[in-house]
Design a protein around this nucleic acid. Structure first.
Length: 287
DNA sequence: AACCAGGGGCCGG
DNA sequence: CCGGCCCATGGT
């Protein structure tokens, strides 16, 4: 991964397996805004960052060399060899098509708290609406940085209540967010300590929060704790998996989940993300 | 195990 | 314009 910094702009000149559009639009994060073709703004890690990608390079701005090395290199998972991941998963001819389609996807390393609340909001909801709700919450309790609002930290969000969360259009999920905040405040769950725990234990703890089931817990583990062995299984994944591997016949979420875990092991999370992007953008039929 | 939880977009009529 | 259906689900 080659890069240099000049005038507070970082130029990424070697960008194998990195497409900003695919990485941001594949459904793993919600605080981004499309400015133009291959031009995005993200709000993450306490900062506002603009990205613009051309055939030759990706530029990140405003961004010092230090911020790139300390924050964004990890956030965009740039230290991982995705060619290797794709080679392993391409042994499966069906998956190979999905990988060719989203070959520039990288799995982000997001903030656990923001990720957790975001995926609680995601349940039975659509992406544009999820983005709107998170933006509402950020504008109400988050810190302003350069005209944008950061997702609030735990302390700031503890000033919320059911009614104010409803005003942010969280709908019936407001009580789940309240329960989440309560458990974090009491120290029943320490998000920082989950990093040291094995995936099953971390998953169990996350699922003790009301409104966090297997799917939401898996998303948090994959998108903010780097647990690539999980396989978040939702209706889209169910559909595309039934289509590809089961001749369009009905399977339960549980059957799909264990099939994928068995088949892809520690690469299941990557497979899931390629399949999700493939299914969503091709709009695989709902039968 | 069916049903319900806001809210809003989309679709057929 | 309006009803019905669906949505990166989980609780009851």
């Amino acid at each position: 991964m080659k890069y240099f910094e000049e005038n507070n702009i970082v130029h990424l000149t070697e960008q194998d397996s990195f497409d900003i559009e695919q990485t941001l639009e594949c459904g793993q994060c919600f605080r981004f805004e499309k400015k133009d073709e291959k031009e995005y703004r993200i709000i993450a890690k306490g900062k506002v960052l603009n990205l613009k990608q051309t055939d030759d390079e990706t530029i990140l701005f405003p961004c010092t060399a230090e911020d790139f090395e300390n924050i964004w290199f990890d956030y965009f998972d740039l230290g991982r060899n995705y060619e290797h991941v794709k080679t392993i998963l391409s042994e499966d001819p069906e998956l190979k098509k999905a990988i060719a389609f989203g070959s520039g996807i990288r799995i982000l390393n997001q903030d656990p708290f923001e990720c957790l609340v975001s995926f609680i909001i995601s349940q039975n909801n659509r992406i544009p609406m999820i983005k709107k709700v998170i933006k509402n919450i950020s504008e109400r309790w988050g810190k302003e940085v350069g005209g944008e609002y950061l997702f609030p930290d735990i302390c700031s969000l503890e000033n919320s209540d059911g009614a104010s969360l409803m005003e942010c259009k969280t709908g019936f999920r407001h009580k789940y967010i309240t329960d989440c905040l309560e458990k974090l405040k009491r120290g029943d769950i320490k998000l920082e300590e989950l990093k040291q725990k094995d995936t099953e234990t971390a998953k169990r703890e996350l699922m003790s929060i009301k409104g966090v089931g297997t799917k939401v817990a898996d998303c948090v583990l994959l998108f903010s704790y780097g647990r690539s062995e999980v396989f978040p299984t939702d209706v889209w994944i169910k559909r595309v998996m039934e289509h590809i591997y089961f001749g369009d016949s009905d399977r339960t979420i549980g059957e799909i989940h264990s099939f994928a875990k068995e088949k892809w092991g520690k690469y299941a999370g990557f497979a899931q993300q390629y399949l999700f992007y493939y299914a969503r953008t091709l709009k695989i039929s709902k039968k």
